[in-house]
Design a binder for these strands. Structure first.
Lengths: 163, 163
DNA sequence: TTATATGCAAAGATTTTGCACCGAT
DNA sequence: ATCGGTGCAAAATCTTTGCATATAA
């Protein structure tokens, strides 16, 4: 995946995250219906992480001409703007969720059954800030993934497969 | 990516991580040259994370019939065995590294230039153990990725693109 | 008006799968 | 001799790109 195909130089939003259209314009981008609908879908999803395809299907339902490639372009833009956080859960597909706080929750992924448990992110806040300071790094998002066996699978001691 | 197509039930290694062949056999798997070479390549890479393709190219050089699909199958097995950790750098490709400690280091990924800084993982040990206990989760690997802007890019305030 | 963003179609990249054969045990 | 593992080839999945058109500002 190419990173930052979009030029966001000096165009980061600094304000009103509640008004998508204004947010886009104030960052120097156009408030197209596609972009607004993508953001809405992501926000309505709450802390469920959607794949690009999930997003596409949701928007496409109300807006049939909405194209897959636009999905990727919009999601890339939002990632660059810091509106959306991209998460990888080890399943080879990118997952996206709206960012309200820079770090919302993290993931325990079971390598047996693929179940994902969310855990609140505040435990990491202090540590990640300290890390960032030490490396003069400006945090966009924090993403912790712990892989292992969930309680059920440990007990079961039997293999569960995932499609 | 399908998870656990391989049956690893009750066959986790408990011992001598230094002898790849014995390690595999004691876990109930066959010690094929392909598997041993993949492990060797990953171990020689130290803390550089290799993509599946990197691994394939390295092994293929000494073993021309070595096939890409075998690469994926072996890496999946090693992940399930906990020998190899899959890390995410936000570039859409899976990266792998040999695991000696359950958590070795984590990553600060610059969304501008793609630079990756490694940071020692011990800061997270306590927290991840606590999290795992709370969720009755058996930790296989811990993977923290912080995305944002590196010091250089913040200063530059100009966009750097990545191929 | 005009540069940005989208739709479309095609290609690219990565990963998975079915099947016949091979080889570690 | 078995059955697990590999090679091969093909497909599936996910994502990116070029270009003409549409549209937000």
């Amino acid at each position: 995946m190419a990173q930052l195909a979009v030029d966001v130089t000096g165009r980061w939003h600094d304000g009103d995250v509640s008004d998508p259209a204004e947010l886009l314009r104030s960052s120097g981008f156009r408030a197209t219906p596609q972009r607004q609908m993508v953001l809405q879908v992501l926000r309505e999803a709450g802390d469920r992480h959607l794949t690009a395809d999930d997003v596409w299907r949701a928007v496409n339902q109300h807006y049939p001409s909405f194209n897959r490639s636009t999905t990727y372009r919009v999601l890339e833009l939002f990632s660059a703007m810091g509106l959306v956080q991209q998460t990888r859960l080890g399943d080879g597909v990118a997952h996206f969720e709206a960012v309200d706080h820079p770090d919302r929750h993290h993931h325990l992924v079971c390598v047996r059954c693929g179940t994902v448990q969310n855990v609140p992110a505040d435990v990491l806040r202090e540590i990640s800030v300290r890390l960032a300071e030490r490396h003069s790094f400006h945090i966009g998002s924090v993403d912790l993934m712990i892989q292992g066996e969930c309680a059920a699978c440990r007990r079961a001691a039997s293999v569960t497969r995932r499609a």
